[in-house]
Amino acid sequence: MILVIDIGNTSIKIAATDNYKIISYQRTTEIDFINDCKSVITQFPQIKNAALCQVGRINLDKIKQLEKLVSVFKIENHIKLPFTNLYQSTTLGNDRIALVSGAISRIEKEESCLIIDAGTCVTYDYIDKNLNYHGGAISPGLRLRYESLHNFTANLPLLTAQTIDNFIGNSTTTSIHSGVINGLAQEIKGCIRQYEQKNKDIKVFMTGGDAQLLSTQLKSRFFATPFLMLEGIYYLYQFNKDL
C-alpha cells in the first residue's frame, strides 16, 4: 500500500492505494496537506512510500515535510514511461503523463484510447494501439467559460455550472448555462466522433471534476473513471519502482 497524491490546479487529492484499489480517498488543501497525510499514514501504518504528481503550486516546505514521513516518488519527464511519447513540445505535463498511464493500465493489447479530462481545462489525449502517445487538444473547462463570459462583458453574471434540461435558453441565465454546458458537451461529442473516424473501436475514458455533470448531457459511449489520475500515478510508481 502506498500514498498517492495529486496536486492539481484547484485541489489536492490524496489516496491510500493498494493493487490499483483506492482504499481511502479525500480532498485537502495546502494548509491541511501534511496533517491529512499524517492522518492517512496513521490509519494505514504499512504505508512507507508515496507517489506524487504535481501541476499546481504548493510550498516547497510541504513537500520536504512529506519526504520526512515517507519515501516520495515524483512524476517527472525523466522517469520511465509505459508509452512512446511522440509529443512535439519539449515537455509533456505531469498530469497528462499520469492520465495516459492510467488509461494504459485499463486497456487491452492493441487497443487505442482517448482520454478526456474535464477539469480547469478540458484535455484530449490520444494513444494508438501501439502505445504511441500523439497528443490531442486543450480547451477551456466549464469554470473558465463561465468566468470568461462574466469577466469580458459588462453585464453578464458569473454563474455556477449546473445540468440543463433544454438547450434553448429563455433567459440570460438559462442561455448562459445552455451556451456553456451544451456548448462543451457538443464539443466533446464532436471530438469523440473525429477519433472514432480514425478507429471505430477506440476506447474513450472521461475523468476530471466536471465529468459527472457533463456525462448527464452526453449520450456517447465512454468509461467514466473518476480516479484515472490516481490510478495512473500508482501505475507509474509500480512501473518505475524496480529501476
Rank of each mutant, 00 (worst) to 15 (best):
L60M: 01
Y146W: 07
G141W: 03
H134G: 05
K241M: 11
M206V: 02
Y126D: 12
L149A: 09
V204D: 10
R106W: 01
R57Q: 11
Y87S: 03
K109N: 15
S139L: 11
N94Q: 13
T172R: 06
L213H: 13
I233T: 10
I31L: 15
N170M: 07
Q212N: 15
Y237Q: 10
V70W: 01
L86N: 15
Y133R: 07
I79F: 06
R57L: 12
N49C: 05
T153F: 04
L184I: 09
S101P: 04
D210Y: 08
I79L: 09
D165I: 04
I168D: 13
V40H: 15
K62W: 02
T207A: 08
D61R: 08
K21V: 15
I116L: 11
K198A: 10
N151F: 10
D6F: 00
L144P: 04
K80C: 09
I127S: 04
I7M: 09
Y234G: 03
F222V: 08
E67H: 03
G102L: 03
A98S: 11
R145K: 10
T216G: 10
T153L: 10
N151M: 13
L214P: 02
C37H: 05
M206Q: 07
D165Q: 14
G209N: 03
N240C: 08
L214S: 07
Y146F: 15
F83W: 09
A185R: 00
Q43E: 15
N132E: 12
S24M: 09
I63R: 03
F44L: 13
G190H: 04
T84H: 12
N77H: 06
I164A: 10
A51W: 02
I23S: 08
N77F: 01
K38R: 15
R27C: 10
P226R: 08
L3Y: 06
R221A: 14
G56P: 02
L156N: 12
N94Y: 06
Q43R: 13
C53P: 01
